[in-house]
Design a protein around this nucleic acid. Structure first.
Lengths: 359, 359
DNA sequence: AGCGATATTGACAGCGCTATCACACGGTTG
DNA sequence: CAACCGTGTGATAGCGCTGTCAATATCGCT
């Protein structure tokens, strides 16, 4: 035999329907689309539901309707606060909507990502947001088979699974290096941590720029697989100084590293930018507050999350998504740490000069 | 009539059972607890499932079993990176388990929190992790009625809903101020942003300490409802300097603020710690890298997340939870920015001296 | 060999909701 | 006035899985 007794206190659609004097299916309609129910019944159902404290059962709904309102989000790290901005955009966009977010952490592993993808797909998500373009072939296939809208975020690539929003890390870094070259820097170091695919592409941009300028020197590149941190910035910079004491600028693949470099320069009494210019990447909030203020490449992380979420919702709800591949661009925010003409290093904080090229 | 045709490609338990030559319920058992199925069938089912590409339907499972494996997590902010450490602990603990996490953002609003709680409860979560002790009465009632394990994190309070893990913000701040007093500071400012309940309690600790020392002066307190940021640290410090130019130390309710204060001191050529000592709160990574290294109150955020998650799992799975209220304590990490006897401010970074009182 | 105890397996009846079709009703239209 | 339409409502039959209990197979022991 199946279940024995029904708990007395349990409130289902049926109970609400009985109290309101309508059929269960009408109550179901009321909750999904109130307009399709006549005004009189609408009121009766509403008060009946409130009286009984009815709460819809999502599992039953998902089973009967063969779909859910869960959006899966896969990001590589919870520590790297680049992603907290993206997440904030995503959460803000879904705020108040009927969708809920399931977040998972791939820890920068494509295998982990594939496993999580598989896990998500068990829930028949309404949509998926994944980071980057380096999914495994199997992962891509899985997602494509699931046929729900998918947005790849953070960067752009040649073959979108479905939709895509990001910017070119190669170009962004190229622009940052070009800015340093324009300031007259010639021996520009590259510091990178973690070396995930996006940092790799920034390194590529650095190499392109340096080679084009005929200034490439592999000794100027110092990287580590260890995650980024301020302390690591100081360490990598120390390594760089050992290898190439003649550097006149440092590009850091993350702002954390740039802050660490700044502190290490203070410790070594190296004048920034006079002796060494510093440029970071991401334009975190603290960059504008540092002394000297630190140049960085602004990336539109919040907007990226917001728009990715909007694209998903539009697609799920059948609205046309204009532009399924969106380039959000970036902007080199030139500040004191890389502006050699100016030397008022200890003056008051100055407003961002978004004078850099907007891409 | 109900549904018409079954999609031909669809794979259910039944299809796997047919191919493996067993009953559907045996396949169900295999997926939930392989050990209860004999070895022979186990192999047949395993290969049948793989051949057919079977993927369990979680909605059906949830409906039939009347429970889910979703853990709801409510945090007030995605921006404040205090929470990213807690989250990392939570995600790490659930990693590889059968539970999945549903994360929501209350934006420091108890009403929003109540709404989200209601939303979560529709899914009959296996457990709930909520931030702080200031839920609405209705929110508490809802959660208690849901009867799933609940852990309140981040702080301690008199009436736990169920389980609780955190530390006393009042005591932590009291200890930090005591440290400054021990260093000979007398005019100690308090800077606070956002002023959420936990920052309020830190302020309380500050007041207690200052009053006990007979040094309390309301003009030394500068706060804002605006969220914390490095720039805001500089601004608040500037305000404080206007109000009380004779301060000899600043306690910052967040490390971001402390970093901003440090930069503002650099801008104003104020020597730290000789002229003004700085103490932060949370001991973020960059505090140990700054010049001078910045004193802070270490809070065990990662461990808090990890243990909260473990407590939930233990409780769900019927293991006894030893200590349903856990005080994780804190530690004042004394660094250069508040150590007045020592003045080697620009020497190499030194290892953390966890010489502070451990609570 | 015979017994109860234990491990495996299966049959059945739902879990609470929604897709689908059917139908009643009032208002048009030719 | 019949044929037609659109709107609101209801009856029915599942969605794919698991809780419960019963049945059978296997085992250790006297």
């Amino acid at each position: 035999m199946g279940r024995k007794h029904i708990k007395p206190g349990k409130v289902r659609l049926t109970e609400v329907a009985a109290l309101a004097g309508v059929s269960p299916i009408t109550v179901s309609r009321f909750f999904r689309n109130p307009d399709t129910v006549s005004a009189g019944r609408r009121l009766r159902i509403e008060s009946a539901a409130k009286d009984l404290g009815y709460v819809p059962n999502l599992a039953a709904r998902a089973l009967a309707s063969q779909r859910t309102e869960v959006i899966g989000v896969l990001i590589p790290s919870l520590t790297n606060n680049v992603f907290s901005d993206v997440l904030r955009g995503i959460y803000d966009a879904f705020e108040g909507s009927r969708y809920s977010i399931q977040l998972a952490n791939t820890r920068y592993s494509v295998l982990q990502e594939e496993r999580l993808l598989r896990l998500f797909l068990m829930q028949k998500p309404a949509g998926l947001i994944v980071t980057g373009v380096d999914q495994t072939a199997e992962g891509r296939a899985l997602v494509q088979a699931a046929d729900c809208p998918v947005v790849q975020i953070m960067e752009l690539g040649p073959e979108p699974i479905d939709m895509m929003i990001g910017f070119s890390h190669v170009d962004a870094c190229y622009a940052a290096i070009s800015h340093l070259l324009a300031q007259g820097c010639r021996r520009i170091g590259f510091l990178g941590a973690r070396m995930d695919p996006r940092v790799q592409r920034r390194l590529q941009g650095y190499q392109n720029a340096m080679k084009n300028a005929g200034l490439f020197d592999p000794r100027l590149i110092v990287t580590t697989a260890v995650p980024t941190s301020t302390t690591m910035g100081g360490n990598l910079f120390s390594d760089l100084m050992l290898r190439a004491p003649d550097i006149d600028a440092v590009f850091c693949a993350n702002d954390d590293l740039a802050l660490g470099v700044l502190f290490e320069c203070q410790r070594r009494h190296i004048a920034v930018p006079e002796q060494i210019a510093i440029v970071g990447f991401n334009d975190m909030e603290f960059m504008a507050a540092a002394v000297p203020t630190l140049t960085s490449v602004r990336t539109n992380r919040y907007e990226m999350g917001l728009r990715a979420a909007t694209m998903i919702m539009d697609d799920v709800e059948g609205r046309p998504v204009t532009g399924r591949v969106v380039d959000l661009g970036f902007e080199v925010i030139e500040r004191q740490s890389s502006t050699l003409q100016r030397a008022a290093l200890t003056g008051p904080v100055q407003a961002d000069r978004a004078s850099g090229t907007k891409w």
